[in-house]
């Protein structure tokens, strides 16, 4: 019964994924065309307006530098010290209770801190266990269902010069934890 459901789900998913792929490929070109023609229709000075907006690109890029240096250096140091392995070791008995494999734990810890780090661990796990294995899929879904919260916060709040972020970080981390726990539960149900 469950097999039948996953099979029909699979067929649906393939055509669905193809359409979505095509859609995401064309969304930007269509979007640009829409903007340009609307602006033309509204008789807005096209090039001047574009330049006016684009001017801000440089100042935003420069403005986020100190925020990004602050966050990325702290995270880089934390990763280099081996603290993540230690934390994973300390947490593993607790997380075993909810069925989280020990090998996946470093991924869960690194995910909010570093996007490239998380992709690196996912690559390692996929190589080690095989691309169709439960571990690889779990790692993939976990990585996909959360975000590099620290990076997002550094860039967005940095771009407007806000340093007192109130509850944004906690909410972001809760989102990551919820996403990863959901990934663990759903993968256990679908892939195991």
């Amino acid at each position: 019964m469950l097999h039948l459901i996953t099979q029909t789900f699979d067929i649906f998913k393939h055509s669905f994924a193809g359409t979505l792929n095509l859609f995401s490929l064309w969304i930007l070109p269509v979007f640009i065309v829409c903007i340009l023609f609307t602006a033309l229709y509204k008789k807005i000075p096209l090039y001047d307006t574009f330049i006016d907006g684009a001017k801000e690109g440089f100042s935003v890029g420069v403005k986020i530098i100190p925020y990004l240096v602050g966050i990325l250096v702290a995270i880089g140091m934390f990763r280099a010290s081996g603290a993540i392995e230690l934390l994973a070791h300390a947490l593993s008995p607790v997380l075993k209770l909810i069925g989280m494999p020990a090998d996946i734990l470093p991924l869960a810890i690194i995910r909010p801190l570093s996007g490239s780090g998380a992709l690196g661990i996912t690559t390692e796990l996929a190589k080690q266990y095989g691309g169709d294995s439960y571990m690889a899929r779990l790692a993939a879904v976990m990585t996909g269902s959360s975000e590099t919260t620290f990076y997002v916060i550094a860039i967005y709040f940095g771009s407007v010069g806000i340093s007192r972020i109130r509850h944004a970080l906690i909410a972001g981390l809760v989102a990551d934890i919820a996403g990863m726990l959901a990934a663990l539960f759903i993968c256990g149900l679908v892939f195991k």
């Binding site: 789900f9 699979d10 998913k13 393939h14 669905f16 994924a17 979505l20 690559t123 996929a126 190589k127 095989g130 691309g131 169709d132 690889a136 899929r137 993939a140 879904v141 996909g144 269902s145 990934a183 759903i186 993968c187 679908v190 892939f191």
Partner: peptide
Amino acid sequence: AAGAKNPTVIIGPT
């Protein structure tokens, strides 16, 4: 890249 035959299965769960 790790040799998955059916990598898009993760779309739904993700």
